[in-house]
Design a protein around this nucleic acid. Sequence first.
DNA 1: TACAAATTTGTATTCATTATAATTTATATT
DNA 2: AATATAAATTATAATGAATACAAATTTGTA
Lengths: 134, 134
Amino acid sequence: MQTMQKLKAVGVKPSITRIMIYDYIFSTKDHPNVDEIFITLKETLPTLSKTTVYNTVHLLKTHRLIKAYAMPNHEMRYDANLDVHAHFLCASCGQITDVLIDVCDIVQTVISENCIDETVITFHGTCSKCQTSV
Amino acid sequence: MQTMQKLKAVGVKPSITRIMIYDYIFSTKDHPNVDEIFITLKETLPTLSKTTVYNTVHLLKTHRLIKAYAMPNHEMRYDANLDVHAHFLCASCGQITDVLIDVCDIVQTVISENCIDETVITFHGTCSKCQTSV
DNA sequence: TACAAATTTGTATTCATTATAATTTATATT
DNA sequence: AATATAAATTATAATGAATACAAATTTGTA
């Protein structure tokens, strides 16, 4: 489904700025923060305002087109991959990678008394690349 | 083990301020942020400085006496419960509760190529109390 | 083409957090 | 006990992420 259709489907006007912001988040595998999105897109949108990026990621998040992840270093990072998955966060290089994982039987233990609609799993450690460069 | 011993064991001078900050985080089940710690302890430590609270939680975190959890609303919250567990975060009331969970077989799927030293699991949803007050 | 609505821009403001310097407290030494 | 030194705490300034706000611009419709 094209970005324009995705935005229209949730009632968000698909302006070029919004499409580019969403496409960047969707295509990068780096879970960017607002500053990274801003710096990257400013190359092709020279008049882009940082406030627009803040407003747009908030809009996309509110309409469940992206998800926000709060990092231990106070950064807020964004992910357009809505499939159920976990993240691996390397303490050395800061890289965040998606980890496919089945959360069904994890959720079982808490679903009996609470209503769960999302499970966030983050593995902290050292990635294989940083381990070999010690 | 008493707080004073815990602090000494990791090479941290067990001043009364530090003991009280640690004890508060340890005893409360609310995973407080810096502002909550500060406001609460100011009642018994009238000259307490917010900078001291920031410095002390950073010290305790660095010495692995407490853990920090970044919340979706940008808050950084602290937990002195070092046992392996997950959290349940209620989207309605904001309450964070500990959830006992076995993460061993969750870690299996990613341990083969990365070095994992911590797994953070957060369940998002609506707690039973907020469900009944709809 | 005119107009209204929406989007974007740019600046000011807020607030969490850190940096810094001064003061106070604790410890070591004489 | 007094003094020197180190560490802790305090208070203020500074930083930077994020939000608020008003103005300008763009888009869509009549």
